[in-house]
Simulated scan of single mutants.
Amino acid sequence: MQFGSILRIVTVAAGLTVAVTATQAAELRIGTASQGGAFYPVGQAISSLVNNYADDLTMVPIVTAGSVENPRLVNNGEVDIAITNNNLSVLANKGVGPYAKSGAMNLRAIGSLHFSILHMMTLDGSDIASIADLKGKRVAVGPAGGGTIPFLGQVLGIAGLSMDDITPSFLSYGDGFSQLADGNVDAAFALSGYPAGAVMQAQANKKLKYIPITDEQLAEALATYPNYNKVVVPKATYGTDQDGIVLGVNNMLIVDAGMSDDVAFKITQAIYDHLDEFQAENAYAKQIIPEASLDLKIPLHPGAAKYFGK
């Protein structure tokens, strides 16, 4: 957090550099993801709520590599608060999986957000009719450091494949789905809230279809990865012929455990006391269930727990 009236340059691991003029209030940086997904506009809306309703605090959204990278950024102090999901927050606090080199972190939750779903899509008319059909295909897998890649690896594993069986393109969601519409990749994946701007933009030019997951594969995924959920995306969302039966995971706001109780409480109050305004500004916020904040997989920060009465 910064105080005083100065001009600063904020740089995070994803490479974004932003000039920021701070006020007398404490300035917070919220880590989001690449543009074209859900995290960035959600972060923008959260920043607006904090700026409007949290005394002595301001907030600015920062483009980052996404949900995998965000816990590291919070842990390193490069951002003060960030968006990630249940699964990754648990791995980060244990220091395992993508965080084995970083070591165990000490993250706490501020509150529950929307679901992210694993968009698994190809062009209508493609010969890709199952996850197994991705073998040997060119696949846009999202940005390096984003949450899509580990999720995709697990889904491929359920079909007996690995990342070595595909030709991955590490692109932002917007670029990945643009490449799909142009025929430069055979499939595109995005772990994002829905409707995702990247998918909507591609759907405006080409008809898309979901790569289906079988009932057996879905059951195996839910049994193996208990943080995942089955989500049904209505066919009207992206103009597909069938509803999308997909895997999803609950997102959350995370901070370091060392954040003061007062700051954590003010952030939580600014967001959840004004959920109606949040939902009017951002479609993803309509999926937020505040009570789900009591069932997240890492502990609530004491300031947030005070707000939720826990």
Rank of each mutant, 00 (worst) to 15 (best):
residue 177 F to P: 01
residue 94 K to Y: 12
residue 94 K to W: 04
residue 188 A to G: 10
residue 133 D to Q: 15
residue 97 G to W: 12
residue 185 V to K: 11
residue 159 A to W: 04
residue 133 D to T: 13
residue 176 G to Y: 00
residue 143 P to E: 05
residue 108 R to Q: 05
residue 153 G to Y: 09
residue 92 A to Y: 03
residue 155 V to S: 11
residue 94 K to R: 07
residue 187 A to S: 01
residue 164 D to T: 00
residue 98 P to S: 14
residue 163 M to I: 02
residue 135 K to L: 13
residue 142 G to Y: 05
residue 128 I to W: 00
residue 181 A to R: 02
residue 171 L to Q: 06
residue 92 A to D: 01
residue 187 A to Q: 00
residue 92 A to T: 08
residue 179 Q to G: 08
residue 104 A to H: 05
residue 172 S to P: 09
residue 125 G to P: 12
residue 164 D to W: 02
residue 188 A to C: 07
residue 126 S to G: 11
residue 183 G to R: 07
residue 147 G to W: 09
residue 113 L to S: 06
residue 95 G to C: 08
residue 115 F to Y: 02
residue 120 M to G: 11
residue 145 G to Y: 07
residue 132 A to K: 10
residue 153 G to F: 14
residue 129 A to G: 15
residue 152 L to A: 04
residue 186 D to S: 00
residue 185 V to G: 02
residue 137 K to P: 01
residue 138 R to F: 02
residue 131 I to W: 06
residue 109 A to R: 08
residue 146 G to N: 08
residue 116 S to F: 15
residue 165 D to A: 07
residue 94 K to P: 01
residue 119 H to Y: 04
residue 167 T to W: 06
residue 143 P to D: 11
residue 155 V to T: 13
residue 96 V to F: 00
residue 135 K to S: 13
residue 159 A to P: 00
residue 124 D to R: 01
residue 125 G to I: 12
residue 142 G to V: 11
residue 174 G to C: 05
residue 114 H to P: 15
residue 121 M to G: 06
residue 125 G to H: 08
residue 161 L to S: 15
residue 140 A to Q: 06
residue 154 Q to P: 12
residue 144 A to D: 05
residue 176 G to Q: 00
residue 179 Q to D: 07
residue 139 V to E: 04
residue 146 G to H: 10
residue 135 K to Q: 05
residue 132 A to L: 03
residue 143 P to M: 04
residue 161 L to P: 05
residue 135 K to H: 02
residue 117 I to M: 05
residue 189 F to P: 09
residue 141 V to G: 12
residue 92 A to H: 01
residue 100 A to R: 03
residue 118 L to W: 12
residue 119 H to L: 05
residue 98 P to Y: 10
residue 185 V to M: 05
residue 145 G to C: 04
residue 115 F to R: 03
residue 110 I to M: 13
residue 167 T to I: 14
residue 149 I to V: 06
residue 185 V to Y: 03
residue 107 L to H: 03
residue 164 D to S: 13
residue 191 L to D: 13
residue 97 G to R: 08
residue 165 D to P: 08
